[in-house]
């Protein structure tokens, strides 16, 4: 994992949870009008978890993922990553976190259309502050291999099918070996067969120790995860982890 080969991480290390939010709120302001999107989000996610954030469209699940992935800022409350508050990070620090610790798989793939698979997967390494240039090639090839696209390495990304594109996007997310992979509706633009394939790749990643946060509105997709957090109108309405712990507490009470 990159946290081990990153001597200047500036984080509190492994004792703190990977992700912790305390009374997190998010509002958008448009021409002086405030639109509240997230209310009082309290969430702890530990390393190695496979979490699905579920909810209908407009529930705020994507916004929550963008905040957790350092693509967007929250309005109130605290978001701590390895115990370090996101609001204390400056622009360069945020760019560094995005480059080294988190990565994204988007619904719309967001590949560079006129670049080859190889170039697309290479892209994050260009901005990676630590991985040396001579390691790039082997890392790219390894990432492409892990999504089973080695025979198409030099294809342009606009020559690929949707499922293949999403696998390239996953390879791109893997290549820096981040601690945390965000997948935003990764099967949303895919037929069911490709969707199953992509979910299998994510499943394999989780099995090999990656922390994955999946955003989806489909129950069937969410069920791949170990833990499901449901959002509705910007509030957490269900968290299977909490349910488990609450259940455990109740069990304790029952035992007494």
């Amino acid at each position: 994992m990159s946290s081990q080969n990153n001597p200047t991480n500036g984080f509190n290390g492994e004792d703190s949870p990977l992700i912790q939010t305390k009374n997190l709120y998010k509002s958008y302001f448009n021409e002086g009008l405030e639109t509240k999107v997230l209310f009082d989000i309290n969430l702890t996610i530990n390393k190695g978890e496979f979490v699905a954030i579920m909810g209908p469209s407009g529930s705020g699940k994507s916004t929550l993922m963008h905040i957790l992935g350092f693509l967007d800022n929250h309005t109130e409350g605290e978001y701590e990553f390895h115990g370090k508050a996101a609001r204390t990070m400056d622009e360069d620090m945020l760019a560094k976190v995005r480059a080294t610790r988190v990565s994204f798989v988007f619904q719309a793939f967001n590949l560079l259309p006129r670049a080859s698979i190889y170039q697309n997967v290479m892209l994050p390494l260009i901005y990676h502050p630590i991985i040396p240039a001579e390691e790039r090639d082997s890392r790219v090839n390894k990432a492409i291999e892990s999504v089973d696209l080695t025979d198409r390495t030099n294809f342009l990304s606009n020559q690929l099918s949707g499922g293949q594109k999403q696998r390239v996007a996953i390879a791109r997310a893997l290549v820096t070996e981040p601690e945390l992979i965000f997948a935003d509706e990764p099967t949303g633009n895919l037929d069911s067969a490709s969707g199953i394939q992509v979910m299998k790749v994510l499943q394999d990643l989780h099995d090999s120790g990656h922390t994955i946060i999946l955003v989806t509105h489909e129950q069937s997709t969410a069920e791949h995860a170990d833990r499901i957090i449901e959002l509705f109108d910007g509030r957490i309405t269900r968290d299977t982890e909490e349910f488990k712990t609450r259940w455990a507490v109740d069990e304790d009470k029952l035992m007494k």
């Binding site: 992935g69 693509l71 622009e91 360069d92 760019a95 560094k96 995005r98 480059a99 080294t100 990565s103 994204f104 967001n110 560079l112 892209l123 994050p124 901005y127 990676h128 791109r172 820096t176």
Partner: peptide
């Protein structure tokens, strides 16, 4: 714009 957004999302600095 989307390409620039992507580059920033994967760690490009200003």
């Amino acid at each position: 714009t989307r390409e620039i957004g992507l580059r920033k999302a994967i760690g490009a600095k200003r």
